[in-house]
Structures are given as structure tokens and as C-alpha cells.
Design a protein around this nucleic acid. Structure first.
Lengths: 233, 233
DNA sequence: GGAGGCTTGTTACAATTCGTTAGATTCCAG
DNA sequence: CTGGAATCTAACGAATTGTAACAAGCCTCC
């Protein structure tokens, strides 16, 4: 089995070294980047399980990067930051980070937290733009679904969020709670029917038979499960 | 929709109050416990999304509890502890906790970290997906029963639970109590007729002759037994 | 500005699931 | 056989989910 990959994004060389050393010691593959642009380029070709991201980057807003990563990739995100204010932590976590570690840190704690993320991590997850599944090709750049005969069906941003969540977590039960939290929204509000409607609309576009959906199954009282073999490319 | 449930296990009343208040404000349901035994009892009847566990408990070893929780429940576990040593954190995370927060803490950070846990999709126990028995193929991914002529009969989640229990324990007596326990319901209530109904519905789908069931036999006064040679694949 | 189109949340009601109830049926001891 | 307990299942209803229809917000193009 190939070792799981952890990417490190930090502009300080010592920190990159310290982290990659500790993580490789612990049995992970690592890839380090000093700049956000290089890091983002790497996501086109590799899909890390966990990303360690320093917020104080020279060339880009770290929080925006975190947000995009959280929505589009299946990777777990751990923020590493010198800012220890509660509000900073909350903002980071709210934007989709899975954990927030304050500098200075002990490398072994980072390893332990990375390992904790690995346990619940989504196995696939790419930041790439197209996914192929069950006779469909979804393109998240053009927001088009293309069937096996080449017919194009456009989908909206909201539908895309749901679709991407499914495509990043195929054949897994996704509870409504997780879905709402992942797609940004407070818990337990009357908002909840919006979720159903999004799914209903997505089902229509995927030409699901309402009585007998093949791709998006409802598990009464539990959530949804996306069947279909997904290949990102 | 039912709000997601967060349980709080801490022996200090002020902390319980502070946390439950903040979490309910954020739209979650909470249940608080001062003792591990009460907490464990509650798990029989409810399944929280996230558990906040204080390690310094009077009546039980917190770390052992965390470990058991991590293995046996599907909940995410966040340790709350006064011990700030790196080694303590590592031990806690290694035993299966998903996060580790040090006292004193800001309630809103706890809320943010709870929300982060809600988002992550926990992998389910990867039991296999299809079983073949007595002319039927049960597919737990698609929730379909397929007979030897290829005809499809969908089954529901509740029916699937019963069916899976039978298929995992063929040719073995399963008492009513065992069945309820493993299907999560509280035992011994007058509610137990639900079990019968589930089985009745399952029998209908398996086209059992009510007078003379071949697959699901009732043992009067004892329970049920599933006959049939099961092959999982 | 405003008309028209698109997106998306909200509402209302329909459909489905599944526990509960209640009577019918079956089982077995006496 | 008979009575009482255990089990079966039709039918009802509460909770959950599906979706059509409406409305609000935001574009773009005149």
C-alpha cells in the first residue's frame, strides 16, 4: 500500500523540515511548499489526505485558500498559525479547517493530530475539475454534466456543492447533519429543507427515477448514500 | 429535522452548564452527565454525533472510556482536560479521540471544534455489501433483494438491519432481546412489537409463506432462527 | 431603470417509512 | 379441548423525506 500523503505549506524552511521529518518518521509521505501557488499547482496531480497550512503566507490569503480547499478537496485541513486568539481559531475552523494548531508546537503533537485526521479521512478527494461516474462526466470548471452521448446538462453552484460532496465520498453514508455542516449552515435550523430541495434538483438533472434512484439513495432517518464508481481526472 | 446531539461528560457543574448553553445556542441538542456510568447507560438509547469527555472523572478512567467509545461508537470524541502536557494530548489522540481541548477554554472555540467534527464523514465499518442465500442476492449498497430470475425487490433501512443480523448469524437462534439490543432499541419495553412487524415485512418481501416460513422460523417463546446458506461476497 | 432569466431558499402539501395499536391467530400447558 | 400467553399482521398515525410552486435576490441586456 502506498503511504498516505501529507502536504505542508509554510514559508519558514525550519518548520517545513521539522514537520516533514516528524511525519516521515511516523510513516507518511510528505510534500512541502513555501508558496500557495506552488501548493495549488500540486493539487492538480496529487491528492493529499491531510494538508498542513500556515496562515501567514507571503503570496496569498491563507483563509481563502483554506475555504477553497475545504469545499473542493476531500483532504482534511489543519491550520498552523502563530495567531492564538480565540476568534482566529473560530474563523479558521468555521471556514472548513478540521483542526487549528498554535505555534510554537511540538512536532509529535502535530503527528498525533494528523493521525487523528487520517482515521476519519475521506479516501478520495481531488481538487481536479472533472469526475467520471456511471455514464456521466461532471466538470466543475464549466459547471456541466455530460452524459455518455455527449449531451450537456448545466448545474448550478449549489447543486455542484452537493455533487462534489457525493463524489468525494462515494458509497458512504452521509448524514443530513454532515451534509449541512459541510455545505456551510448552522445546525438544526428550519433551513434544513433546502438540503432536500438541492438533492431533489440534482436528482432531476442526473435523470434519476424518483421511485427508484440508482445514484443517490435515501436512507430513511439516517442520510444519503451516493452509489457509483467515481474516477477523478 | 432533529438537531444533532452532543453529549457532555464532566464532573464540574459549571462547565457542563457553560458548554450546554453555548452548544444549544449554536443549534445542537445536548445531554450532560457527571459520571461515566450514567453516560454509558445513555449510549444504550441514544447515539450522539459528538461526545465531549473530561478526563478527570471520579468514577472511572477517562482514557479507557475514550478508547472504548472510539472503537464501539460512531461518535466523534473531543477530550477536554486540564492536563496540557504534549504527552497527554498524544495519548488521548492515539486512543481514538478526534480532538483535545485544554482547560480553561473559550466556549465558542469548543462550539467551532464541535462543528468541525460534525462535518467530517466517519467511515462506517466496511462490512461486505452483498450476500447470497437461498435463491436471493441481498445488496446492502443498493438496498435491493434480487431473486434468481433477476427481479428486484427494494428493502428499507429498518428491514435491512434485521436482514443483516440474520445473514450474519445464520442457523443460529436469535432471541428477541438480542435482536433489539443489536438493532439499537431500548430493551424490554412494550415497544417490542416493532420487531415483529419488521420481521413480518421482511418475510413478505422474501415471499415467505406465512403458514410455513422456510427462511425465517419463529421459535415460540425463544426467538427466531434464519435458515439458509449464506455466502458473503 | 426595468424586464426577463437564473439561482436558490421557503412553503405547502404529497409520499414514504416505520413504530404503535388492536384484534386475529397460533402455540402449548393443563 | 381450553385459556392464556406469544406472535402475526392490517391499519393507523407521527415523523421523515420528496417536490411543485412561489418568492426573493441577483444577473444581464436593452
Amino acid at each position: 500500500m502506498t503511504k498516505p500523503l501529507v502536504t505542508i505549506l509554510d514559508d519558514e524552511p525550519e518548520i517545513r523540515n521539522m514537520l516533514s521529518e516528524a511525519l516521515e518518521e511516523a510513516g507518511y509521505r510528505t510534500a512541502s511548499f513555501a508558496r500557495a501557488t506552488e501548493f495549488e499547482a500540486s493539487l492538480k496531480t496529487s491528492s493529499p489526505e491531510v494538508c498542513l497550512v500556515d496562515l501567514g503566507l507571503p503570496d496569498k490569503d491563507g483563509l481563502a485558500l483554506v475555504h477553497r480547499l475545504a469545499l473542493e478537496s476531500g483532504a482534511s485541513i489543519i491550520i498552523i498559525s502563530g495567531r492564538a486568539q480565540v476568534q482566529d481559531k473560530i474563523t479558521g475552523l468555521e471556514l472548513g479547517a478540521d483542526d487549528y494548531i498554535i505555534k510554537p508546537f511540538d512536532p509529535s503533537e502535530v503527528v498525533a493530530r494528523v493521525r487523528a485526521r487520517m482515521r476519519s479521512v475521506k479516501p478520495v478527494g481531488r481538487t481536479s475539475d472533472t469526475a467520471i461516474f456511471s455514464g456521466w462526466t461532471a466538470n466543475f470548471e464549466t459547471y456541466l454534466l455530460i452524459d455518455d452521448e455527449g449531451a450537456e446538462v448545466p448545474f448550478s453552484h449549489a447543486e455542484g456543492e452537493v455533487l462534489r460532496l457525493f463524489l468525494n465520498n462515494p458509497k458512504r453514508l452521509i448524514s443530513r447533519v454532515q451534509m449541512q455542516e459541510s455545505l456551510g449552515g448552522a445546525a438544526g435550523e428550519s433551513f434544513d429543507r433546502a438540503m432536500d430541495v438541492r438533492i431533489s434538483r440534482l436528482r432531476t438533472k442526473l435523470r434519476e427515477d424518483p421511485k427508484n434512484p440508482q445514484l443517490i439513495k435515501t436512507i430513511y432517518g439516517a442520510g444519503y448514500i451516493f452509489l457509483g464508481d467515481v474516477v477523478w481526472s
